[in-house]
Design a protein around this nucleic acid. Structure first.
Lengths: 264, 264
DNA sequence: GAGAGTCTTTCAGTGGGTGAAAACCCGGAT
DNA sequence: ATCCGGGTTTTCACCCACTGAAAGACTCTC
């Protein structure tokens, strides 16, 4: 895959961000040259900026001198309200869900026209799913995606329905009209079912997490083997968990324990 | 607490990083003025840089116009090898540990002279602990901290032993000589016990996660009520989990499922 | 020991970045 | 309705941090 350099504006900030952007799940560590090439920043500049980032802790260098995302950046980023903030509120409920079912449990939010997975609990012996915490996926196929799409602003729905709908399996719903009906069902029933639409052997049931103002902040799903699945039986379980998370979010932001650091 | 502005070098990059650094667990969303004040960057500059960061997704603005860490930054940061990389490998084992005990399970790494918590599973009815994923803590008090300190390079140990050792409770070991003996025990026994050294009612048992080259990459711990605790009984459990994670890390980096994104 | 690759450093020119200050935009008080 | 104080956004001319290219250093391989 020939990756052309992301359009580097001329601002310093955009170059710094381009450097961070160069890291991807399948290229989590990079040499300086790779970093420069992938970010579209000149070698000399990449060297200079990367050095600053390393000094601060946004990047780290391993024994071989290759660059990787630094723990310090991860610390700061963990303050993202839709990242770990959401995760913290949801975790106990996901935990329960996992313990009862021992299947894959997922928590995701919508970012633009894609799903971003915020949390994933995968049983060792549950169906393999190829999602990753921090990873993205198309909206129209997964259980969480259908929920998020069904409750997304009209503009977003139209854009997705208008755009090309990638077919992952023969069962993926790619026809806009049919997808529209599916979304209506999701809204009506209060949960989504994605049966073999991502991988043939997996079925997922998703439910929405509402905020106080009635919009959908996130979605929870349970992914099970398609053959033995009983979506109707799983739905209440997932919906209950979703409702629990709603409540935790509503009451939540006021933390129970003193958030933060050791007293000095 | 009067927070003086972090020494802002004159480089653009340092200013951008200072902006990110301004966010803390107890100040996860900031107005522009607050952001400028806390980062030590002039208001006009803060405005300009923040706008760029928002455009890229490193920051977000809520309905009220306040700034928060953006999901996009969280996505990139999730590639940190010692962050989610480690977490992914460890999660199944932490899961098991939680399921068996229903107590608090923690995973942490050392960063400089402090512990950074990478994962935490907290039972709703387990002892309250005031750690946070992405949060920091002193090395000499917690179960994970003692493990990480005991296996840290000599230079690190000396620096911690030399520096002031904050006393969280009457039981916190603050005497360097005694602490040295504790650390020796941790190395010998293969696990640590922190009994009421952070909060009086909590006891934690920690064990090291080794890498292939014999160094300690992380630590796992179980935190339980101090009164009913049987450290000797918990230790094998924690150690087993730690060993499991070692193995997963060793065999791990070669991923089972195709890591990454949807095919285009 | 030459050669191909990567990484690091130097150089002078320049354009993105800068602070100060003015303009703007609210909601609350008068 | 008007004023006022807080925050935010924009303008302006100056200037220094940033820049690319090229040379130097370092590390492997053949």
């Amino acid at each position: 895959m020939t990756r052309q350099a992301p359009a580097t504006g001329t601002s310093v900030t955009s170059k710094v961000l381009a450097l961070l952007e160069a890291f991807t799940p399948d290229a989590a560590d990079l040499s300086l040259s790779e970093l420069a090439r992938r970010s579209g920043v000149s070698l000399a500049t990449a060297h200079r900026r990367a050095a600053e980032l390393v000094e601060w802790g946004a990047l780290e260098r391993d024994a071989a001198g290759r660059y990787r995302i630094g723990l310090r950046l991860w610390e700061v980023a963990s303050l993202a309200p839709r990242g770990l903030g959401l995760r913290d509120a949801a975790m106990p409920f996901l935990e329960d869900l996992y313990e009862v079912t021992h299947e894959n449990v997922q928590l995701a939010v919508r970012e633009g026209l894609e799903v971003v997975f915020v949390e994933r609990i995968a049983g060792r012996d549950a169906v393999p799913v190829w999602t990753r915490v921090g990873g993205r996926f198309a909206l129209h196929a997964t259980g969480v995606g259908l929920v998020l799409l069904a409750h997304a602003p009209a503009a977003v729905q139209e854009e997705v329905l208008g755009g090309p709908l990638h077919s992952y399996t023969a069962k993926t719903v790619c026809d806009p009209a049919r997808l529209r009906r599916v979304l209506a069902d999701v809204r009506k029933q209060g949960y989504s079912v994605s049966d073999g639409q991502v991988t043939v052997d997996a079925l997922s049931v998703g439910a929405p997490v509402f905020t106080a103002d009635g919009t959908v902040a996130a979605a929870v799903s349970l992914v099970v083997r398609a053959d033995s699945a009983q979506p109707g039986a799983l739905a209440p379980l997932v919906m209950a968990a979703a409702r629990g998370i709603c409540r935790a979010l509503a009451g939540g932001p006021a933390r129970v324990f003193p958030a933060g650091r050791t007293r000095p």
